[in-house]
Design a protein around this nucleic acid. Structure first.
Length: 770
DNA sequence: CAGTGAGCGAGCTTCCGCTTGACTT
């Protein structure tokens, strides 16, 4: 009789494929595609009267998986449940055993943390049973999250706006963004001065320039000026030179969070883009699993990396290292994210996939390389009668070590060196210039997606599989908006003492401040919901809430606490707060009175209206209707001033007549514009303002646009009026029936024939359909 | 690329964590 194959069930199909390859013909390996059962999507799914008993259902999209697993179990000998070794994995194993009615005698639970032949074979020889305490910890986690989410969200629908949501993770993420915005807004800028000098020295008929700074801040223009006056005509000298060896250690291999941060910093990828690229790399077998909190590398990876490093750079560059996770709540069910085969430097695929792989490869290899050794030289420069010293530093790399593949600073491609001229103590120095430049203290930075992930991870909130979805959710709910801001110009004072006339000159420079790229800003709704939740659910919004309940889940997992009792205790405190929040009568609109309209004396009010944030002048009384104007992008109820609010009523405004038609200035969806004869002309925001733009300037803009339009049309064809060759923002292109097509660089657009154009179009369409 | 801002009521929305496709844009 034929021996039945044993069945191994893992979570991921890609993993199943790999393991099947490793184990060969005696094993069938199937995947559960994550959880197979969950609480109902629509209902609470928890029996509050009977010990919070969860009501699990198999979601429609999982029915096929389950029926296939049933079939596989029927044909199998032993069943080995090999889901991940963490709370969720244990629960998956338990749900599988329940749903598939697996008998104890033929069912085993096995775990491994890396997909290597040794690890898997070792796991098979040491099976255990399902750890029900760990499963219960997962159930408690699941139920707590469901209670929080499904009891608070409906309150928001009633008291704020439909379809909003709240949760243990997302609401704290929003809170971080809201509070940071307020910190930035309340930040009091302080001006101070930094003094730096350029000195020169002559050695063996060669002149060297040496730049040095005074580390202390000068509190005022007066203090800076006094110091410059003092320096007039003084000779400086090198007081001290110290050389100090420094070493730099490579960073640990990637986890989900650090991969997202580095891909954001170096490649400017959004968190979700990074994850979808990583998913493709994983499925193609190029990298290990991309949702992990572990920095651990398998011994197989350590060996292969070492071999590659020796081959590329030589023995002295290799150093095998074991990294330890310091992350709060890490469960370390997988390895770090690394190339499956560290000897593979490049992979086929899209440009973006290749760049992400390159980053992962470099980070992994670097983690197994020697420290970089750097010699840092510090030179102290001073003059008699002053206790302020200029400091110059130089850094020379003595041994590159890991910096050969992975520079650690600011995402720069290469590690940077700074050199100093050959100096000796006591050498006199003449100054060329001594400059005091005004600086401002800086508010804390706004979060971008990856910085937010890092903060969440630091607080132990969320898991590798949820970072990207959480960030998408808070944007989809409209709590947070990812956008760019142009920044504003501000004046800074520059005082320069020059050796030419030994005179101090003063100059005003401009610098841009507050420029932002892809940063997270809270919306009015985000702020309103945050304040509402903070008022009624202080505990859940607490940054330590997750850490606190995690400790209790750990207790359950250790078998010390009963999960129902834990939830019971939580709910006894939580549910009355839900009821209290439901009792408030008014809808929250965030209404705020800004002041009085100087023209009419009526109240100017901002609030969230039916279609979003709005300013309102006057209250509705009898027949009297208030006037309304929507807030603009970037304006917030919390920070808008009375003047800004009143400005919103000044547009659109008629600025004059041109060719017997009115010109109207306004601000629309795509920025400031002039409307004339039903055509729109955009006003360049950097140079003009629709509130103040003159008739003459408006005509200028209209004429300039007409001129550009004329130049835009390069060629038309008698054969087909739908076909045009046009001049666009990025050069000439073909337009055909609302679609645009590129013209190859080598072709001269003026001489293209009708046939050539049609060929280009059909080729482009063929490519697209592939 | 503009302006909406009354009110009622039915039916819908929602959490976090595990996994991928199957869709459209």
């Amino acid at each position: 009789m034929e021996e039945k194959k044993n069945l191994i069930i893992v979570e991921s199909p890609a993993k199943a494929k790999t393991i099947e390859k490793i184990l060969g013909k005696n094993y069938k390996v199937k995947s559960s595609f994550g959880h197979i059962r969950d609480l109902s999507k629509k209902k609470l799914g928890i029996d509050l009267e009977h010990g919070f008993k969860p009501q699990y259902v198999i979601p429609d999209e999982k029915k096929k998986v389950v029926s296939e697993l049933r079939k596989a179990v029927k044909n199998a000998g032993h069943v080995l449940l090999a889901s991940d070794e963490d709370r969720e994995g244990e629960a998956i194993a338990w749900h599988l055993s329940e749903v598939l009615s697996l008998p104890d005698e033929t069912t085993k639970r096995i775990v491994f943390h890396e997909i290597t032949p040794t690890a898997i074979k070792q796991a098979i020889t040491s099976p255990r049973t399902i750890n029900l305490d760990l499963v219960n910890a997962q159930q408690a986690r699941r139920i707590l999250d469901r209670l929080v989410g499904f009891e608070i969200s409906p309150i928001l629908w009633k008291k704020v706006k439909p379809a909003l949501s709240a949760g243990r993770v997302q609401s704290v993420a929003v809170r971080l963004i809201v509070e940071r915005e307020r910190e930035i807004h309340n930040f009091k800028l302080q001006s101070y001065y930094r003094i730096s000098g350029e000195f020169y020295l002559t050695l063996n008929q060669k002149t060297y320039l040496l730049k040095a700074d005074i580390p202390e801040k000068f509190p005022s223009r007066k203090a800076a000026l006094e110091f410059l006056e003092f320096c007039k005509g003084k000779t400086f000298s090198v007081l001290n030179i110290t050389k100090k060896p420094l070493k730099r250690t490579p960073p640990a291999p990637f986890t989900t969070s650090t991969l997202q941060q580095e891909a954001s910093r170096r490649l400017k990828y959004s968190v979700s883009y990074t994850m979808s690229l990583a998913q493709r790399l994983y499925e193609a077998g190029y990298i290990t699993y991309m949702r992990t909190d572990s920095v651990n590398l398998s011994s197989l990876a350590l060996n292969a990396s070492r071999k590659k490093i020796v081959e590329l750079f030589g023995e002295k560059y290799a150093k095998t290292r074991h990294f330890k996770t310091r992350t709060k709540g890490a469960q370390e069910a997988h390895e770090a994210i690394r190339p499956t085969y560290p000897d593979r430097e490049t992979i086929p695929g899209s440009k973006a996939e290749q760049r992400l792989y390159d980053l992962i490869w470099k980070r992994t290899i670097a983690s197994q390389m020697e420290d970089a050794r750097i010699e840092k030289t510090t030179v102290t420069i001073g003059t008699e009668g002053s206790d302020k010293y200029f400091i110059a530093t130089g850094e020379v790399i003595k041994f590159e070590g890991f910096l050969k593949v992975y520079s650690d600073r600011n995402g720069a491609e290469k590690a940077e060196e700074t050199f100093l001229p050959p100096l000796k103590t006591g050498i006199p120095l003449k100054y060329k210039t001594i400059m005091a430049s005004e600086k401002f203290t800086q508010p804390p930075p706004r979060y971008n997606e990856a910085m937010l992930v890092r903060k969440l991870e630091e607080l132990g909130i969320g898991r590798p599989s949820t970072y990207a979805p959480t960030i998408t959710t808070i944007q989809q709910r409209g709590y947070v908006i990812k956008e760019d801001r142009p920044g504003e110009s501000r004046n800074i004072t520059l005082l320069t003492l020059n050796d030419k006339q030994d005179q101090i000159t003063e100059k005003t420079n401009k610098e841009t401040v507050g420029k932002e790229k892809a940063k997270l800003f809270p919306s009015d709704i985000g702020m309103l919901v945050n304040d509402f939740l903070l008022e009624h659910f202080t505990d859940i919004l607490d940054y330590n809430f997750t850490a606190t309940v995690e400790k209790q889940f750990d207790e359950i997992a250790r078998g010390g606490v009963n999960w129902q009792q834990m939830i019971e205790k939580f709910y006894k405190d939580f549910h009355p707060r839900v009821e209290a929040a439901e009792k408030i009568t008014h809808k929250r609109t965030g209404e705020k009175v800004l002041g009085k309209d100087p023209k009419t004396g009526e109240e100017v009010i901002v609030k969230i209206g039916r279609y979003g944030p709005v300013v309102q002048i006057g209250r509705a009384e009898g027949d009297k209707k208030p006037r309304y104007a929507s807030l603009r992008k970037g304006q917030l109820i919390e920070t808008i001033t009375l003047e800004e609010a009143l400005d919103l009523f000044k547009l659109p405004r008629t600025i004059g007549i041109f060719e017997n038609k009115e010109m109207v200035a306004g601000i629309g969806r795509y920025g400031p514009y002039i409307r004339h004869d039903n055509k729109f002309y955009s006003i360049p925001a950097q140079t003009d303002d629709p509130l103040t733009i003159t008739e003459e300037r408006a005509i200028e803009i209209i004429l300039a646009k007409r001129e550009a339009e004329k130049k835009k049309l390069i060629k038309t064809f008698d054969e087909d009026p739908d076909l045009q060759i046009l001049n666009g923002r990025w050069g000439p292109y073909i337009k055909y029936k609302k679609n645009n097509f590129r013209i190859p660089k080598k072709q001269d657009p003026e001489n293209l024939t009708y046939e050539e154009c049609m060929n280009l179009i059909s080729e482009a369409q063929k490519k697209k359909n592939k």
